[in-house]
Structures are given as C-alpha cells and as structure tokens.
Amino acid sequence: MEKDMKEDEFLKGDDTSGKGLFEVVLDEIKCIGLGIDNLRGQAYDNGSNMKGKHLRVQKGLLDINPRSFYTPCGCHNLNLVLCDMAKSCTKAISFFGVLQHSVPSLTLKSLSQTRWKSHIESVKAIRFQTPQIRDALFKLEKVSDDPKIKSEANCLAIFELENFEFLLGMTIWHDVLFAVNSINKSLQSKDMHIDVVIDQLRGLVSFL
C-alpha cells in the first residue's frame, strides 16, 4: 500500500550535497511505497547538486533506473527566460529598477530574482493603482521632514509615474507576466497533462 503524501510536503535535508539529497529522495520514494523501477522521469531546477551528472540526484536515480530520464523544470526555465528578457533590454532594466525603487517606499510587493511571480504581483500593484500611488508620493513629499525622502518621492511621482515609457512598459510587462504566470500555474497543477501544456506553451510563444 502506498502512504498518502501530504500536499506540498517538504523533506528535511541536513546534507545538501548531491549525495545527501539523493539519499533523502530515495528514502522518501521507498517510504511512500513507490517502486523506483517504475520511475520514468525526474525534473529539478538548475541546482548542480540536483541535476549534475556526477554524484548528484539525477545520476543516482539513473544508476538505479536508466529509464528515469531527466528533464529541466519547466517552471524554472520560464523564470530564466523572463530573467534573460529583462536583462537584455535597457528599457526593461530601467522599468524594473524604478519598480524596485518604488516598492520599499510604498511597501508594495517586493521583487525576487528566483520567483518571477513576485514580479507580476509588483507590476499589478502599480498597474491598477497608479493614480493613488502618485497621490501618496505627493503626500509623502509634503509631510516628510527628510529632504532625501522628499526629493525621491517627488522624482518618482513626476519623472517616473508620469513618464509615458514607464506607463507603456508597465502595461506590456503586466500582459507578458500574466501570460507566463498562467502557464506556470498549469505546469504545477496536479492534473496537468503534457499534451495540454505543450499546446499552452506554443500559444505562449505565439503570444510573445
């Protein structure tokens, strides 16, 4: 009988080397009653201790079952695509720089380089509240006694939030990030079917 595994369960790994993590994964597979000979795939992010070909989790499972083919994590790859998109365009770099600069001042959603869902949340927070945020910056400029804060608030309100390129970039990035985030959710759903996701990825490529 298979043991029921808790949803979104985390496994404790004190040894984060490839060998240590492999032993944790192998023990869990045995614990929940799955036959490792039936394993047909494994997928991880780009961590060398997971995907590496020598003394890593991928290598350990392939040694036991050569049919457990490794595939890079689709969600992580989408994150990398977005990172490359943002870093290859000077306007994107400028846009997210302004966004990150605005976030601490307004306690909006902060950015994360590894979880790009945070970017859609950050963009959405400003995308649909731009006038209110602009008003809040003007109010901050008036009430603050700190010259630096007054200056930064004024610059953000006038030269950034009223800037056409910033507003256009915000609209474009919101649509792009929303589309990618939808695919990410499909890839992580329990009832995901690979043929459906392939069609969705093709649609995403066409959209981009």
Rank of each mutant, 00 (worst) to 15 (best):
H76E: 05
E141R: 15
S17Q: 00
N163H: 12
T90Q: 09
I126W: 08
V196E: 10
I183P: 02
L21T: 09
Q132A: 01
T90E: 08
M5V: 15
Q58W: 02
L82Q: 05
L168E: 15
K12Q: 10
P104A: 04
R56K: 14
K59H: 09
L78A: 11
D4I: 04
D45M: 02
R127I: 06
G60W: 00
F159D: 15
L82W: 03
L55R: 08
Q129T: 04
D145T: 14
L21V: 14
Q113Y: 01
K185L: 08
D146N: 14
S105W: 11
F164R: 09
I158P: 03
G41N: 06
M170F: 02
Q188A: 11
L34C: 01
L106K: 04
C73I: 07
S17G: 07
T16C: 01
Q188E: 09
F207K: 15
D135M: 09
F207G: 01
L55G: 07
C89K: 05
L11Q: 00
L177D: 07
I64R: 08
K51Y: 02
D84P: 02
N65L: 09
V81E: 06
K117V: 13
F178I: 11
F10R: 14
L82V: 15
T107L: 13
I36Q: 06
I32G: 04
D195P: 01
G18K: 00
F164W: 07
A86I: 14
L61Q: 05
G13A: 15
T114H: 06
I36D: 08
E162T: 13
S48N: 04
R40W: 01
K59S: 14
G203M: 01
E9S: 13
S182E: 14
E165W: 06
N77P: 05
Q132K: 11
E160L: 04
N65S: 09
H119P: 12
K30L: 05
